[in-house]
Design a protein around this nucleic acid. Structure first.
Lengths: 217, 217
DNA sequence: ACCTGAACACCGTTCAAGT
DNA sequence: ACCTGAACACCGTTCAAGT
């Protein structure tokens, strides 16, 4: 996901006195860059202020509190996800799968989304959801089914996108694998059989298609 | 979910000197109670120390850092979720739906789980997943399908369980509804039609069954 | 009007000192 | 061996004072 260029020109030497007002969006963009670069815990008012050459206190004029800023970052990311549009019934399946892939890539790029989710990002997601459900209903899917299908696609995208987001030490990785092996026993060969080295996006798309096909009427 | 009683007897008057050692689990149980009572942001080393009548520094002997303690809390909650067991093929559908309901109720009780998730809780989830997948494979479901079905059930349970976890002011609630209405337009009547006032658990079970039926071979 | 930056009340984490 | 609690380096948030 491309990040907007620095929105505020920084004078070579800090000058006192009133400066051009920052936009909320410029601050959100800066916060997003910061999180993508240094991780979610690096987002602090003080770090943003440093980056923007502001005093700490100034940020409170734009955001009620840190949670508010975090929420707006999540909203900005989600605003970049395009909902499906109704065209033809035949395209519905492929469109839904593509929507899933798009969302998956967004959450891969910003795996901290669930930790900073708030009311504002919830509103953005609600709007995207409504548009997707509308498209499905125009294609003849009933409201309940459309809601469930969308829920499946969005949540699988999120889960698959963040699967590798928790840093695992090699020892822990091995411990998890051993625990799974102990449970699965002699079924392991069957499991690894299908995991040929195909492109992950292709495999994810296949999984999305399998789910959506099973759920469309 | 029942919480264990306070594990350490608190002397009426604080006495200096060595005291009986606390167990990691006793501290985790205390942290869990604290989060359920006062929300996830109330979990601090200092609050736990106060509750357990300990000095702040002592907790670092048990947990590397706060994230470690949070992770163990999530692991404790997840350890209470029972995976499905293989019995008969006929029971598979109902068992998977029940597993979904169980998980959904856990996440409703502790909606902060995603925010405190870490390597230890990931290991617990991995073990539960392996057991569920094994049961499905013993019932004749191939490994890939079993993985996808489990992914769908677990992630829907999580999403549906936390749907109402973000506090929304009435104004925001209205703003979200208005945005959805603007997108959906005249399709709203169709949507609300099915939402008769049935028990939420029953509705969730129906949704789980619909999904699983569509995905089982 | 808008920004500054000291002040305040909290944190997590460390570690010499106690018992 | 285990706990204490002061000390340190950070936070978010507030607000009188500047320009």
């Amino acid at each position: 996901m491309p990040i907007a260029a620095r929105p505020i020109a920084k004078p070579a030497v800090a000058k006192p006195g009133p400066r051009p007002r920052l936009s909320r969006d410029a601050i959100v963009a800066c916060a997003l860059r910061l999180m993508d670069r240094e991780g979610p815990e690096a987002l602090t008012f003080r770090a943003v202020a440093r980056e923007l050459d502001l005093a700490v206190g100034a940020l409170s004029r734009y955001f009620r509190n840190l949670a508010d800023l975090q929420d707006e970052v999540a909203a900005k990311v989600m605003a970049g996800v395009r909902p499906i549009e109704f065209r033809t019934k035949r395209e519905l399946l492929a469109q839904l799968a593509q929507f899933g892939i798009d969302l998956l890539e967004s959450t891969e790029d910003h795996p901290y989304l669930a930790r900073i989710h708030g009311p504002a990002s919830a509103a953005v997601i609600s709007r995207i959801s409504a548009r997707c459900i509308k498209a499905m209903m125009q294609a003849g899917v009933d409201a309940e089914r459309a809601t469930i299908i969308l829920s499946v696609v969005m949540n699988l995208a999120y889960a698959w996108g963040t699967r590798d987001a928790i840093p695992r030490s090699p020892e822990l990785q091995a411990r998890i694998a051993a625990a799974a092996a102990a449970e699965l026993g002699d079924l392991i060969p069957q499991m690894t059989k299908g995991a040929a080295n195909i492109d992950p996006t292709t495999r994810h798309r296949q999984w999305f298609l399998l789910c959506i096909k099973g759920l469309l009427p």
